[in-house]
Amino acid sequence: MTDESASLTEPWIAKHEAAYPYAYDKGGKLKRWFGVSGIPHAVLVDATGTVVWRGHPATLRESEIEEHLAGTLARPLYEWPAAAKGVAKRLTKGDLGGALEDARALSEDDGGPAIAAQIQGLIDGRVAKVEGWLSAGNFLDVLEAGGDLAKGLGGHEAQAKVQGLVAQVEANKDAKSVVDAQKRIRKLRAKDPSKRKDIERQVEDLEKIRDEMRGTYAAEEAGAYLEQLREKLMR
């Protein structure tokens, strides 16, 4: 959004007493990534950074939200006590094993045991996510996010489990073509085309990938992005 829009936005926020945090999606980059074509539109992201729901905010059920609150941090990092700042830093760097160790070393007054329990919850949630990707055939996320998770779990008993999941994909000969196709799809998506000609070319590429990869997760991924591009063309 432009500076001018901000000057119009702030009075609106004040007038409507909108108490929630807000920020600006300058240039609409995030909106385009999600393919948001109408507002209001809401996206629910779980604690592992995965999109779990999207649609008109009025249709979001409370039970849907509650379902995704398990294993989330009870308090956001910026509200953590000063003594736990180092733990927070390790967490955001993906060093979950180190963060857990440091949290366990914190005193009860500094919230150590509670923070450690929450980090354990985060780890459990992330491991379950990698298992889910594997059973859905989403091999690229197992390799990339699962690989990062395994690295970050140094010293934790879950590390071997995640390494095992990643190894299953690496040993699966059929997974390679799916991974390659997923990489191609995500590369196309990252280009964020705006010209009609470029969008049409991407549609062709994606249709090809979807047809070649039929029955795999890559075909689903291609299909979802195709839908977004087709809507873009209709606008």
Partner: peptide, 11 residues
Amino acid sequence: TALLAGLALPA
């Protein structure tokens, strides 16, 4: 809340 402009049907 991300602020932006733009209108059409949501997917």
